[in-house]
Design a protein around this nucleic acid. Sequence first.
DNA 1: ACTACAGTTGAGTATCTATTCAACTGTTAT
DNA 2: ATAACAGTTGAATAGATACTCAACTGTAGT
Lengths: 119, 119
Amino acid sequence: MSNDEFTCDCDVIHADVVDLVKKHMPDDDEFVDLSAFFKILGDYTRTKILWALDKNEMCVCDLATLLNMTKSAVSHQLRLLRIANLVKSRREGKVIFYSLADDHIKAIFETGHEHIREK
Amino acid sequence: MSNDEFTCDCDVIHADVVDLVKKHMPDDDEFVDLSAFFKILGDYTRTKILWALDKNEMCVCDLATLLNMTKSAVSHQLRLLRIANLVKSRREGKVIFYSLADDHIKAIFETGHEHIREK
DNA sequence: ACTACAGTTGAGTATCTATTCAACTGTTAT
DNA sequence: ATAACAGTTGAATAGATACTCAACTGTAGT
């Protein structure tokens, strides 16, 4: 079990610990998905967009005005948020309203806030 | 209140909503800190490191072996995690053990997982 | 049909960032 | 003293990414 080929540049110091942790390690896919999810939250503009949409559904122009950005820049970010299933949209004539698609965002923001406050 | 100078490339559509949201908007600093925090979580390598340290305290070589990376690459990432107050370290001879510095990480991972599962 | 405007999209650019590489520090053992 | 090794660090590089710009789509009104 600890006879794997190692391409790292050091000896194994605590083989027992490494083996134990490796045994319970989830698939790579899970880490890919999880880090991708947090990567989406880890941007100043997207954080503000998500916070705003938690307060009210808003259209692209509203968000562009609020954040003092171009429609294009906002739209590009909304596209990423859409792909990540974090926002949903509904059309009403020419206007497209965006809102949060996920209940967890508020909870995640709260926990993040707690961390920041405690540091 | 809605007479601000707008540098965005569109008219305000729902001025009432924009004003309301803007009124409750936290300081920019909060968004900077919050997005910086999630940015740290939003990396494949760091996610795995945090997950591993949640299972056991580990030294750099253990992590390098587990993740099949060089000590240098792991150390660089641990540095970022240290700065963000997400991990702490203790020295024991030549070996430096890293462990989680924050109780919230597990909870945040859980919530992130829920989002991924529900999509 | 034409105009106006909300929104999207693709290419280009400037910036950021994760890893590599090589040189370094700190501690232990001989 | 010096060899060995855990760990750090700075510079360099390769890849990712946020915004700009210009062209485009979709819908409403005239």
